[in-house]
Design a protein around this nucleic acid. Structure first.
Length: 652
DNA sequence: ATTAGATGAATTTTT
DNA sequence: TTCATCTAAT
């Protein structure tokens, strides 16, 4: 095996110590911009250079973006013929493990993975079945899903979650339990796993079938990035895995950048790591290679107001000259968008690349006005928020066709597919599905299937529809590529024309989907990768020219781990960040979100906010103009290194 | 009894 | 823009 010589001279002393540390347990506390991921991937490469096989390494992280980043960096460091490193998000590794060994806990390896929308549909159906008519005050499917998920990810009883988050629904506690039980049962019999189930099942598998030295789940070393984003169950999965390999584990994280508490992330996983594990070596990385002193000063000032943290002040790696971050109040959201678009154009005309700039915000909806303004001025942008590629209806339609061929019991996919047949609605469709599932396979049904279930008119439509479905199974085990093409040659194409208002674009998307599927060996791996990595295929919403660089618009959560020369943080008013925060912990979380945003900037950082508070229904008549926004409290508390508010907004 | 189209209401952050 | 509920058509 030919190995690339790893060049360790580019690492600083602290990083080098981590990279070359002896096998054992290591906790690396690293601030923003200190080369966290780089250090971790160098360690992976170092271990491989020392003789470890890449397949025996396991690299884990929470978000897809971080995983992609990490895997790309790691594989750039090792020679291509040394094989693939084993790594990805917790969910994708769970999926891989369960496809192979899930049968140990009674799982059928063809299971489907369902996303939030699918969950909602299934819960809705379950509620209708268990409770009959809906009560106005019974929590919506959306809320129910959130309760269930919270209870799992935060490892608290459903009762506690309801009491804390929706006390007004506590009267329905019994019904909520019933729905939960029925929903769980239904998922299982449909052979479907949601995101949480992936973790639960992996956890259960490890708990029941792993023991010290157990080969099945053995990894010579385990490296975890963004450890502050892990939740309770993920933390336990890491514990169990490291028990198998007798404690070879390196976790890297920054408690100050923990911004996923809403889905159960507990930075206590970091804070308590030393108590949970024996013989832990702790390392600190504090040198920041990203930002100017001015940006770092503000970041340090902001985060110093948080009480719960490992305090680690970031120090700039280089002496740099920069401008102090600046705040620009504007009359309203329109003015904010116009001003910003103009500023961006100015920068661009002064030879700043669009790809060196980014606009960050707290929620998706904050980007709307700016988008309109950018389109008006022909400024190309790329947006990393909003509806993802795989969540769009037409894409899900096609995927549902593939899912039913993989997993005949997938009632969610069936509902979606059959729902496209005219004359068949919720009631008749559920009758049909019941029969289909009984039959074990679509192809075992008799030709006149449906005749005794549907009225005449609907049956005539169904016959055509049903024949087409059957024809999908004609070539022996067709590829995803073939299947998608067959679907598009059939009546689904007409369905798109009738049902959606921009059918041409949608069909192009589906064409893209077919292209993507072409590189997959099996239908199954394509589908599960698709659901889990959906955004990776991200035909992100793009405007402007097809080629060349684009300005990035992103939520702060999605911008984590990235950096730009110039960063604008819009809607930097207090209510954007703190309106929903109730407890001190909530405020600290928002402060960390703010801190993450600030530390994305290398040299220029500007905040803007609209002075007049206008909520989203503003178009509707109600007068709301009397309330004025204040700048975000994180900018004015303490003694911040910020050019004070109302300083005139001079930026460059 | 069901479906399908119309109307009015509501939006954190991610896997 | 998407989602739940109401209402008219089958």
């Amino acid at each position: 095996m030919i190995l690339m010589k790893l060049n360790l001279s580019t690492l600083n002393e602290d990083q080098l110590k981590v990279v070359t540390a002896a096998k054992g347990k290591h906790l690396v506390l690293a601030g923003a911009g200190t080369g966290k991921t780089r250090t971790l991937t160098y360690r992976a490469a170092y271990l491989i250079e020392k003789g470890m096989s890449p397949q025996n390494l396991l690299l884990l992280t929470f978000t897809n973006k971080a995983a992609r980043n990490m895997m790309a960096q790691a594989s750039a460091l090792i020679s291509s013929n040394s094989g693939m490193i084993n790594g990805g998000t917790f969910h994708s590794i769970a999926n891989r493990t369960l496809r192979v060994n899930g049968s140990l806990i009674g799982l059928d390896s063809n299971f489907s993975i369902i996303d939030m929308e699918d969950q909602r549909d299934l819960v809705k159906a379950t509620v209708a079945d268990t409770l009959g008519r809906l009560d106005h005050y019974f929590p919506t499917p959306r809320i129910l899903i959130e309760m269930f998920s919270n209870s799992i990810n935060k490892n608290e009883s459903l009762e506690n979650i309801v009491m804390k988050n929706s006390p007004q629904s506590y009267d329905y506690m019994k019904e909520i339990f019933d729905v939960y039980a029925a929903y769980t049962k239904r998922k299982w019999s449909a052979n479907c796993l949601d995101y949480d189930d992936l973790l639960i099942c992996w956890h259960r598998l490890l708990k029941e079938f792993s023991s010290e030295g157990e080969e099945l789940f053995f990894h010579e070393d385990i490296l975890v990035d963004e450890f502050q984003d892990t939740n309770k169950i993920q933390g336990e999965i890491v514990d169990l895995l490291s028990k198998v390999n007798r404690g070879r584990l390196t976790v890297v994280g920054d408690d100050c950048q923990s911004i996923f508490a809403f889905r159960g992330a507990v930075y206590e996983n970091i804070l308590e790591f030393k108590e949970r594990h024996e013989d832990v070596q702790v390392h600190y990385l504090k040198k920041n290679y990203r930002s100017t002193t001015q940006v770092l000063n503000l970041a340090n000032d902001i985060i110093s107001n948080n009480k719960k943290q490992f305090y680690k002040e970031l120090t700039p790696a280089y002496k740099s000259v920069g401008l102090r971050p600046n705040i620009m109040p504007l009359p309203n959201v329109n003015a904010e968008a116009t001003w910003l678009a103009k500023k961006i154009l100015d920068s661009y005309q002064n030879n700043v690349k669009l790809s060196d700039m980014a606009v960050l915000y707290r929620n998706h909806s904050h980007s709307a006005f700016l988008q309109a303004e950018l389109v008006k001025r022909n400024i190309p942008y790329q947006i990393r928020s909003g509806v993802r590629f795989f969540e769009q209806a037409h894409i899900k339609d096609v995927i549902a066709h593939l899912k039913i061929l993989m997993n005949n019991r997938d009632e969610i996919a069936w509902t979606r597919v059959i729902g496209m047949c005219p004359g068949v609605g919720a009631v008749r469709s559920s009758k049909l599905i019941k029969e289909i599932i009984k039959a074990k396979s679509l192809f075992e049904l008799s030709e006149d299937f449906g005749k005794d279930i549907l009225p005449e008119r609907a049956y005539r439509n169904w016959q055509i529809f049903f024949k087409e479905l059957l024809s999908l199974g004609v070539p022996k085990s067709p590829t995803a590529f073939q299947l998608i093409n067959m679907i598009m040659e059939g009546s689904y194409s007409d369905y798109v024309d009738i049902k959606y208002k921009n059918p041409k674009n949608r069909k192009e998307d589906i064409g893209q989907l077919a292209q993507l599927s072409d590189s997959y060996k099996s239908l199954g791996s394509f589908i599960s990768d698709f659901v889990l990595l959906g955004e990776m295929f991200g035909s992100e919403v793009v405007s402007g020219t097809e080629y060349g660089e684009r300005l990035v618009l992103s939520t702060i959560h999605q911008a984590k781990g990235l950096e730009w020369d110039r960063v604008w943080i819009i809607r930097a008013n207090d209510s954007s960040f703190c309106a929903r925060a109730e407890t001190q912990d909530d405020i600290e979380e928002e402060r960390r979100v703010f801190y993450v945003a600030v530390t994305r900037a290398k040299r220029f950082l500007t905040f803007t906010y609209p002075i007049i508070a206008k909520e989203w229904g503003a178009a509707k008549s109600k007068f709301q103009g009397s309330e004025l926004n204040k700048p975000c409290r994180f900018l004015i508390e303490g003694n911040n290194s910020l050019d004070k508010p109302f300083s005139g907004g001079f930026v460059f």
